[in-house]
Design a binder for these strands. Structure first.
Length: 232
DNA sequence: CACCAGGCAAGTA
DNA sequence: TACTTGCATGGT
């Protein structure tokens, strides 16, 4: 075994089960064209606000921003830090998140002059590296922005994904596994090309939906649609 | 009252 | 590299 990650075939032969999960969830919940936001800009702000926070609280914060006409690059750029903090308060960690949002907006001005079109034209790998260098943007937030705002073929791994892989015995130790390894698992089995952007979008959306209903930290797995996976 | 939520950065060993 | 801790509101 050249690599620890090859042990026990941990990462091999998972294609069928990954497609099965997608199939079951799609059948259960139906197609979703996702990220609950009205604009790509709102997606990016939401991606930061939802860090370790319930979406309900994020909605309150987004609504505050909307009411004050702050859902644009220019408006967030202009507003002073303390006012921003007050508006996003319901989303929690507001002192940090306000700085994170400011840092992200400064980046978009510095590198792309607030042009979403230019951001979408950027190479995926380059953009991911750039995003990860911004204070407050980690792997999940970067990938959410890449996939749902910039429409890039990148698979998003989150707490729900880890729990589902762990609880249904698909990957041992998924809760503690490195983000990179879990992401590679999906992207090796579902080719990251233009045609699969829709699948990436939908798959993660379905995982979040299933996670909220059946795979919370305190398990509530009574009629989880993924139960039938155990026969594979 | 305790626990949880679509993470992340900084500190420690 | 692998753990630990602080951050904070609002719902159950």
């Amino acid at each position: 075994m050249a690599d620890k990650n090859d042990d026990f075939g941990k990462w091999e032969g998972k294609s069928d089960i990954l497609l099965k999960i997608y199939s079951i969830l799609l059948d259960k919940f139906g197609p979703m064209n996702w990220w609950p936001a009205k604009s790509d800009f709102e997606v990016m702000i939401g991606a930061i606000l939802t860090q370790n926070t319930s979406w309900k609280n994020v909605e309150k914060a987004i609504n505050n921003l909307n009411v004050h006409n702050l859902l644009s690059f220019e408006a967030i750029y202009e507003i002073d830090l303390n006012s921003l903090k007050q508006h996003i308060k319901p989303s929690g960690y507001y002192n940090q998140k306000a700085i994170k949002i400011k840092e992200f907006i400064n980046f978009t001005k510095r590198e792309y002059n607030f042009s979403l079109e230019l951001m979408k034209k950027e190479d995926v790998f380059i953009m991911r590296e750039k995003l990860l260098r911004i204070f407050g943007i980690g792997e999940e937030t970067a990938d959410s922005i890449l996939l749902y705002a910039l429409k890039k073929p990148v698979f998003v791994i989150d707490a729900y994904t880890r729990r589902i892989l762990e609880r249904h015995n698909i990957i041992k130790g998924a809760l503690k596994e490195k983000y990179e390894n879990l992401q590679r698992l999906f992207m090796k089995n579902i080719t990251p090309d233009e045609a699969n952007i829709k699948v990436y979008n939908q798959y993660h959306a379905l995982i979040v939906m299933a996670g909220k209903m059946f795979c919370k930290r305190t398990p509530l797995c009574d009629n989880c649609p993924l139960k039938e996976l155990e026969e594979m």
